[in-house]
Every structure is written in structure tokens, then in C-alpha cells.
Design a protein around this nucleic acid. Sequence first.
DNA 1: ATATATAGTTACCTCATGGATAGTGATGAC
DNA 2: GTCATCACTATCCATGAGGTAACTATATAT
Lengths: 130, 130
Amino acid sequence: MDSDDQSPFGYDAFRRTCPSHTVLEMLASKWVYLVVCALRRGRLRNGELARKLEGITPKMLTQTLRVLERDGLVRREVFPVIPPRVEYELTELGQNLAGLLNQIRSWSEQHAPDIKDARARAEHGRDLVA
Amino acid sequence: MDSDDQSPFGYDAFRRTCPSHTVLEMLASKWVYLVVCALRRGRLRNGELARKLEGITPKMLTQTLRVLERDGLVRREVFPVIPPRVEYELTELGQNLAGLLNQIRSWSEQHAPDIKDARARAEHGRDLVA
DNA sequence: ATATATAGTTACCTCATGGATAGTGATGAC
DNA sequence: GTCATCACTATCCATGAGGTAACTATATAT
């Protein structure tokens, strides 16, 4: 893909026309990555998710799941019983996204050390730079 | 890569130990994607970047470039002349990141339509769902 | 003397994200 | 009657990312 030239520059154009923006915006959300990872192995109930995602509040869990559902990445199934039972699972699209997350993780595992090194060099600053 | 089980759950653990967090955090920044794309074709001066990235303010341009420089993705070269001349270019690591951005764009181009469809379905809501 | 060009700073303000906390509804167990 | 369970929902509030606008320094050109 070398068609970078047609890419919109300027943030407004980027947001309106570049598909990457949609995805990046999702991934920027604090819990999306974790929720998708948690669901990779199969369907889970709300409570199971809440326990698995240590530190998440019910509000953020629901909010995240609603966004994911709206975007077609997660399927929500409600069992009309009492007490309530609700299960969540990745759709095909969601599993596909998990694949992208693997690519990102793979890149990160390869290169995060370089970034950390650069940060360390920048932090200790010029006392080391002759 | 199937080693999802060792992945930290809970946001704090994620942040401290998962390399993906470092990268995702970067990509969440509003201008990083655009700046890296702008520099893909070669080095540019500050003013050239400012003109290319329609809508960016000098503050955000500098801020973004400083972060990228600190993380070893961008090299900054200062020419001691007046008026000042400063050029920026991607490091090898930065070009590598551009590769990841291409993967993300590729995925996005393939699947963003599905996401948009899902959103449209969610918006018009249940009046269409029998 | 004044204007211009370049590459930034600096101070201030706004608004969205997300955290904290408490409340809701329905039913079966005790 | 009331307590527990489960899956939320509602409300308020703090933090920080990012926007706005004005200011800086220096040498050359006029």
C-alpha cells in the first residue's frame, strides 16, 4: 500500500474519511483491548467479565460492551430469568479484531524494548550524551 | 500467538507489563498517526509539517514531535542558522511503526464498512428488526 | 527603525473520559 | 419480611488531553 498521498491530512478530513480513524478511536478506549482479549476464549457472563477485568466498574464494563455491541464486535444474549443472566461473545468481526490486536501485540513485543530504551536515554538526558 | 492466558488482566497490570499498552497509548494521541504518515515520504521541516497537517497548532505539533522523538521514532535535526531551520524524519523504528500503521489501515479498510453497517443498524434501531 | 521569517514557548480555558458511589427491579431462599 | 443475587443505571466529580491566543529570539532585508 503506497497510496499514502490520497490520505487525508488535517484531522477533520482524517476523521471523516479515513477508516483507520474509526479503529484507532475504538482502541483508544481504556477497556476495549482488555474486554476483547477476555472474550477471545469464549462467551462470558457480565459478572465473569467483571471479575476477570480487575478494577473495572460496572459502569465502564457496560459502557464498553455497549459500544462493542453497537459496532458489531460483540453479541449480547439475554436469558429472561431471575436473577438475570446475560452472556457476551465476540462476533466474527470481533474475532477478526482480535486478530488485529495480535498483530499489534506482536509488533509491540518486538519493538517496545526499543521504545523503552529510547525513553530511558531521553530521561537520563544529556549527562550521558557527551 | 495463543499465549493470551498470561496476559495481564486488570488495567494496572496491563499498563505496567503489556507492551501493547505502550503502543496503543501512542496511537491514541490525536496527531501521532497523521504526523507519522506525513513523514513517511521523507524528512520535512517544522513549517512544512505545519502546512501539511491542516488544523494542527504549533503547540500540538511540537508536543507530538517531542513525544515521538523521546520514544525514538523521529529524529530531529537542528541547523544553527537564522531564521531557524529544523528538520524531522522517521528513524528506522519510526518507519517500522509506519508499517504497523499500514497493517491497521489495511484491516480498517477491509472491516470499517462492517462497523459502519452495524452502527447504522444500531441507530435505526428496532424499527427495522422485526 | 521596522518588518519578516522560522520555530517554537507560555498561560489559560474547555470538555470528554472515566472513576466513585449509591440506587433499581425481580424473585427465590431463609 | 428481608436478604442475597445479578445486571445494570444514575449522578456527581476530578483529571488531563487538547484548543486559543499571545509572546519570544535573532538576523537579514528594506
